[in-house]
Amino acid sequence: MSERIRVAIADDHVLFCAGIEMIIRSQPDLEFAGTAHDGDDVVTLAAEVHPDVILMDIRMPKTDGITATRRVLVDSPDSRVIVLTTHQRQEAVAHAIDAGAHGFLMKDARPELLLAAIRTVHEGNSVYAPSTTLALIRDLAPAVRVEPDQQAIAALTAREREVYLLAARGLSNAEIAESAYIGETTVKSHISSILAKLDLASRLQVVAHAYNHHLVQ
């Protein structure tokens, strides 16, 4: 059996956390890695156990989820954060993307969607839920129509630029592999290189980067 995905939850509602824990423990490929009830505690938890995926509430005592996400990813850069939200505001989306969040999920999502999101993010993809996230990224990008800033991706190889543009459209690794006629492992390698070269923390930041530099519409 392959190594299980270690999942932690950060939320100040104890019953909500208990429900998530039960769902995670019910899955043979997942392992529950711990609970934190405020932003400071999740930073400590992440530093101690380095979960693969952290479900992060935005509103928490002491330190909010956006700030906690940024701090977690400094100390545990291999962890992936899914931001939990009860409603989507443009400011929250922008701040979460800037902090390095790998996806968004509504707190009232069905259990099967939550489980799919955990596995999807662990595989290196991003989760755009609610479905308006990409539209909001477009809205948050500079409104002035200018020529594409190709210099913004000058550090990338030709193949990396191709993968970058496909990822910026929200395609999954499997979809990029099919479109570019390469293997998914190669896609993952290119994505890692793209993030490193452009100093980005997540695929959501790739999307925002592309819109901010007018490389996609």
Rank of each mutant, 00 (worst) to 15 (best):
T120E: 11
T186D: 06
G65I: 07
I58G: 09
L204I: 06
H122Y: 06
H13Q: 11
T67Y: 08
G65D: 04
T157D: 07
A210S: 10
T185Q: 14
Q150E: 14
Y211S: 11
I58Y: 06
L198A: 03
V121L: 00
I153D: 00
T85W: 07
K188D: 14
Q90S: 13
E184F: 04
H213C: 09
K188H: 07
G39N: 05
K107D: 01
L30I: 05
K62S: 15
L166N: 09
E147A: 12
V93K: 02
V144M: 12
N125Q: 02
I20C: 07
I194E: 00
G103F: 00
K197P: 04
N212D: 12
T133C: 14
I9T: 10
R25L: 11
I191Y: 00
Y211G: 02
H209K: 03
R145P: 04
A180C: 11
A99F: 02
I194F: 00
V207K: 02
I97E: 02
R71A: 11
Q27R: 10
A196H: 12
H95K: 14
F104L: 00
I97M: 01
S126A: 11
E184K: 11
V121G: 01
A135W: 15
I82C: 10
H122L: 03
R169P: 04
H213A: 07
A109G: 02
H102M: 01
L171M: 15
S179G: 10
Q90M: 14
I66T: 03
M1G: 13
A167P: 02
A180I: 06
G100H: 00
L195Q: 08
G39P: 01
S179W: 12
E123Q: 14
P77N: 05
A143C: 09
R89S: 14
Q27Y: 02
P61C: 11
V43A: 04
V74F: 13
L156N: 01
V144Q: 15
A143E: 15
V216S: 05
T35Q: 12
T186E: 06
V53N: 07
P28D: 07
E162W: 08
I5P: 01
A210D: 08
A208V: 09
R89C: 11
Q27S: 05
L73M: 08
P142G: 03
V121P: 03
L140G: 12
S26M: 06
I24S: 04
D64V: 08
S189F: 09
A201Y: 09
D199C: 06
V93C: 00
T132G: 13
I24V: 09
I54Y: 08
Q205M: 10
L15Y: 04
A36I: 02
H13S: 07
H122S: 12
V42D: 06
V121E: 04
I153N: 00
I118Y: 08
M106D: 10
R161L: 05
D78T: 14
Y128D: 15
E162R: 13
T157N: 00
S26I: 01
A8E: 05
G103H: 01
L200T: 05
S76V: 12
D75M: 13
N125W: 05
M22H: 13
H37Q: 11
H50G: 08
R203W: 10
L171A: 09
A210M: 02
D199M: 10
T63G: 14
L105Q: 02
E91F: 01
T86R: 13
Y164G: 08
M60P: 01
G100P: 00
V74I: 13
S189N: 14
H190A: 06
A116C: 04
V163H: 03
G183M: 07
V42Y: 08
A201L: 13
V121Q: 05
V206Q: 08
V42C: 06
